[in-house]
Design a protein around this nucleic acid. Structure first.
Length: 645
RNA sequence: GGGCCCGUAGUCUAGCUUGGAUAGGACGUUGGCCUCCGGAGCCAAAGGUCACGGGUUCAAAUCCCGUCGGGCCCGCCA
């Protein structure tokens, strides 16, 4: 691995050097940690250690004296990638042998090309990445887009690391939301679907839900005496009335048909529940209706995801785990443990007791002493709940997988913890460390909260279409002589790249406040900036037929060249860290800083018109390496790198 | 009531796991740069009580305790 990681080799050498010397001078000193860090200023070297501050505690000498003693010993050793070592104010500063580092990096990149930096793990695992898994009752929106983009990047990164990765989409077809759509669709007389199906079904969902809410709220208001409660109900009714006005304006005829249907139904909620129960039973007519709707919705999802170049290996239907009896098998097994009991006809899982008995309470739920809420597994009417079915699903996942990464919103944290506990009860021991909830925060809108129920959301389609249109406009301004088809291709790469970068560059634990301005401002967004750096590198390489034969890396003396070489040499390390810690944002940030280094280099130093041939050849090598690294890095994030833009 | 997450210039954001030298970057603002490989670019300037208060340490944005703001969860919803 070290041969494939130039900067890592340098770091390793610094570590070894320090260890050797400290062991010699202070044999009894236990090195706790030997962290080498990148100094704040290049004049302090390329890597530095503050170990002397640590030593000074034990040996009561001041760090500067210790540093010079250590330096004395270091200078007796032979170096490979280390060029020189200095001390300053107690720090030991290592300077890299730049020509050597450059040569190694460039040669590796030339040899490995698309594989450069993608260092393979020593312990390949079978990993399932479950992501997106949007409820099939309406279109993907900007929130699920964040999920899809994160999940897709994680899958790409883990695959590149040498793991066997499968991407799964969990189709949540069992449950209330889909049942509501089924109800509404039936009220409409099951018409042929004309527009994009997920969008159309999203309308039916919102309209039906709205009609049911209005009816239910009116009934409650008629019965309520409590003034405060009455006010609350009236406010909600007003909200849904507003939603109704909007729905009426888009699909008037259909909306009234649904409204009338719901109003003439003596008990709509009961009708919806009946759909849920019948579907779970696998009753023929309900099955036909629901499956039809969900299939249509998934068609819409696929179309959207295809535009974003996000694909899946498996679509796992929740219902299949119910019908195959797998859910009940799991329930029966849990029933036999001491951790379940019956309450008011429902089957309840005592998560707290199970976690404590298995000794995993702290590990799963943290240090605090709080009482873990119990989990209802089976309703008193005999139907199952989401998390129950998820248990069966995960038993299946772990039959194949060594590790399961679930890209699921942070609001489901408790459910994921309860799920993990259940799996441990059922004997899936690897779930303890290998069931990973990759939690991400929600995407919010500036003025209002997104709400599927109220039909207030920005769809992934709208987002893509707007961004691509905007990009096409920009491309047309700049590259007038390109054929239309190529312009469109570039616009797609730029527009979608901008969306993906926006989602990937913010840590998953932070809420994203969505604004059109942020995504569509290509000046501010880093994706077009990075792609531009890549296009410039490509342009240089396009313009020359020179195959640099005799580069001389000692000629690279300019700080801008140095900065670029160091950045390039760090790519394998950044990649490994991103992959092993599931941190795509590291690659986003890295790509941006590499583009910075390249753009600065490009602006100041001529490549093809360099002062002499050897220098030209050497710089050409750097350009080539930059192109390779930018491609590899962005590719891991699912972002394209067009040669022209 | 309990648990978890977030708080860094006017705005957005990195760094927090593993404490280290001058807190990186972007938008916006101000001022420069196309006889030179693509100006979606480059250079420079201004802008910070790292929410607040304690503590640990030679050293705290980073670790610990507390406070305040914002969010999420604690459903026979998903």
């Amino acid at each position: 691995m070290l041969d494939e990681n130039p900067f890592g080799s340098f770091k390793k050498e610094c570590e070894e050097t320090l260890k050797t010397v400290i062991k010699k001078l202070y044999p009894e000193f236990q090195i706790q940690k030997l962290v080498l860090e990148i100094p704040p200023n290049p004049q302090y070297g390329d890597l530095a250690s503050s170990i002397c501050f640590e030593l000074s505690k034990t040996y009561k000498e001041n760090p500067e004296t210790l540093a010079s003693k250590i330096l004395n010993e270091i200078l007796k050793l032979k170096f490979n990638l280390i060029w020189k070592v200095e001390t300053l104010r107690g720090y030991i500063n290592f300077f890299v042998n730049l020509p050597k580092l450059a040569e190694q990096t460039v040669n590796l990149a030339e040899k490995l090309k698309k594989e450069f930096g993608l260092v393979k793990t020593e312990k390949p695992e079978k990993i399932i990445v479950e992501h997106t898994s949007a409820n099939p009752s309406g279109p993907l929106h900007v929130g699920t887009a964040r999920n899809a983009i994160l999940g897709d990047a994680l899958a790409r990164i883990l695959t590149a690391r040498g793991h066997k990765v499968k991407r799964h989409f969990y189709v949540d077809d069992v449950g209330r939301q889909v049942a509501i759509v089924a109800y509404g669709y039936r009220l409409l007389g099951e018409p042929k679907i004309k527009e994009k199906p997920d969008k159309w079904l999203g309308f039916i969902y919102t309209a039906t839900n709205c009609a049911v809410e209005i009816k239910t709220l009116k009934e409650k208001i008629a019965k309520t005496q409590n003034q405060e409660e009455l006010e609350r109900l009236k406010r909600r009714l007003d909200e849904y009335a507003a939603v109704a006005v909007e729905l009426e304006s888009t699909h008037k005829e259909e909306f009234y048909k649904i409204l009338d249907g719901v109003n003439s139904d003596p008990n709509p909620n009961q009708t919806i529940e009946k759909i849920i129960v019948n579907y779970e039973k696998g009753e023929k007519e309900t099955k036909r209706l629901v499956r039809r709707i969900v299939k249509e919705c998934l068609k819409g999802f696929r179309e959207t995801l295809k535009k974003a170049e996000i694909s899946f290996d498996s679509w796992d239907w929740e219902s299949s785990f119910v019908w195959s009896g797998k859910v009940w098998e799991a329930i029966e097994k849990l029933k036999k443990t001491p951790y379940t009991f019956t309450r008011d006809g429902a089957l309840v899982f005592n998560v707290q007791l199970a976690a404590e008995t298995l000794g995993v309470k702290q590990k799963i739920f943290g240090e605090s002493l709080f009482e873990v809420p119990q989990l209802v597994l089976v309703r008193s009417d005999g139907t199952t709940l989401y998390t129950t079915r998820d248990i069966a699903y995960h038993l299946k996942k772990f039959e194949w997988a060594d590790r399961v990464v679930n890209v699921v919103g942070v609001e489901q944290k408790l459910a994921q913890q309860q799920l993990k506990t259940a799996l441990l009860v059922l004997g899936v021991e690897k779930a303890l460390n290998s069931l990973i909830h990759y939690a991400y925060e929600l995407v919010k809108l500036q003025d209002y909260r997104m709400s599927r129920r109220r039909g207030k959301y920005i769809t992934f389609d709208e987002l893509i279409d707007e961004a691509v249109a905007m990009a096409l406009n920009e491309v047309s301004k700049r590259s007038l002589n390109l054929p239309e088809k190529q312009k469109q291709k570039i616009a797609k790469a730029v527009g979608i790249g901008a969306i993906k970068y926006t989602m990937l560059s913010v840590s998953a634990t932070k809420t994203v406040v969505f604004s059109w301005d942020k995504v569509l401002n290509f000046e501010a967004n880093a994706a077009p900036y990075i792609q531009y750096a890549h296009a410039r590198a490509s342009s240089i390489l396009r313009k020359t037929k020179i195959k640099p034969k005799k580069p001389d890396y000692a000629l690279l003396q300019n700080p801008l060249e140095k900065q670029l070489i160091i950045k390039l040499s760090m790519f394998p390390e950044v990649f490994c860290e991103a992959a092993d810690n599931l941190k795509p944002e590291l690659l986003a940030e890295y790509s941006n800083s590499l583009a910075d280094a390249f753009n600065a280099f490009y602006n100041k130093l001529p490549v093809l018109k360099a002062e002499d041939k050897a220098l030209r050849d050497t710089r050409l090598k750097l350009v080539k390496t930059t192109k390779i690294v930018l491609e590899n890095a962005l590719n891991l994030l699912g972002i394209k790198t067009p040669g022209k833009m």
